[in-house]
């Protein structure tokens, strides 16, 4: 399998001129994914930032075939596109769905589950910016504890969101999917390697990409990559794979980087008190104890 890096990565762009905010992490995830998948890619995008910024009539930022799907149906539409390509005898193609965290972990979960169950030959990308951003920052099932959003305000009684991130990667893996992985735009080579694996997977594959959102998180547009890396280094996100029925932890930091540095760089977490940060750290430690015990390490 090709080992992708900046040097051998194609100079050609397949997602260009989009209207995402400057420094948008999701748009980098889509851009790099499209560069690996190539020009014979058919993309399905539900309602969400990535469709909203690329299909603004008469602008169209994808240079390949791409379609907007109803919010709940990324998995189903991608399945249908793959079936259509097969029926028409169009070969050497990739079918990919790019949905947000809301579009994946909440409203699109059923359609995704169906696609995995049928083992349809699609790649499903979850672009996780930890809230419903396109409609103005509402809490989703992937919003972490202590996040201030418009539907989980922080105040005297609540520290913002009071639920933890849904274990979306494990939910997908529990289907017995062919290939699943978590990634981060802060580790682009790892991300590209996982997209390459998904590309070479016959059947359904799922890649969950952690992607900061300067507008919704309240951070400078220049630190998107740095924050995405810090999330992994501080243990608030993890890089893992599910292959041949086994979980693999790709990166196991000996010591976690500062959670406080990561949180305090973002206005969505600025209100957090020491005791709230304790809750976040305890949850992190419990998750890592389980991953370190039960998952292979490679």
């Amino acid at each position: 399998m090709i080992k992708h890096n900046a040097r051998n990565l194609t100079n050609e762009e397949f997602f260009y001129g989009h209207k995402a905010c400057g420094g948008c992490g999701e748009s980098l995830a889509v851009r790099l994914t499209m560069k690996i998948l190539g020009e014979r890619t058919f993309a399905a995008l539900p309602a969400g930032c990535m469709s909203a910024v690329s299909f603004i009539y008469p602008n169209m930022a994808f240079t390949t075939n791409a379609i907007i799907t109803p919010f709940a149906s990324t998995g189903a539409v991608a399945s249908g596109m793959a079936a259509g390509l097969k029926a028409l005898g169009i070969e050497n193609t990739q079918t990919v769905g790019f949905a947000g965290d809301g579009g994946t972990a909440d409203i699109g979960l059923q359609a995704l589950s169906g696609a995995i169950d049928r083992n349809d030959d699609i790649i499903y990308i979850c672009n996780d910016n930890e809230a419903y951003m396109n409609t103005g920052i509402q809490k989703s099932g992937l919003t972490p504890y202590g996040t201030k959003t418009t539907t989980s305000p922080a105040g005297k009684n609540l520290p913002g969101s009071i639920t933890m991130k849904k274990n979306m990667f494990e939910i997908v893996a529990a289907h017995g999917i062919q290939y699943a992985a978590t990634a981060s735009v802060g580790y682009p080579e790892d991300l590209m390697a996982k997209i390459e694996k998904a590309k070479n997977t016959k059947g359904t594959s799922y890649v969950h990409i952690f992607a900061p959102c300067p507008t919704g998180w309240g951070h400078g547009s220049e630190v998107t990559i740095e924050l995405a890396k810090q999330a992994v280094d501080s243990g608030l996100w993890y890089l893992a794979e599910f292959e041949n029925g086994e979980f693999i932890l790709n990166k196991n930091p000996k010591e976690f980087a500062s959670v406080e540095n990561y949180l305090m760089a973002q206005s969505r977490f600025k209100h957090l008190k020491e005791e709230d940060i304790e809750v976040i750290k305890n949850h992190r430690d419990a998750k890592w104890a389980k991953m370190r015990k039960d998952w292979q390490q490679k």
């Binding site: 001129g17 209207k19 009539y57 008469p58 169209m60 930022a61």
Partner: peptide, 16 residues
């Protein structure tokens, strides 16, 4: 389909 792929009719330079 609303328009062909690779169809840019406005630039983003003014955002800068």
């Amino acid at each position: 389909s609303t328009c062909p792929s690779d169809h840019l009719t406005s630039i983003n330079a003014g955002w800068r």
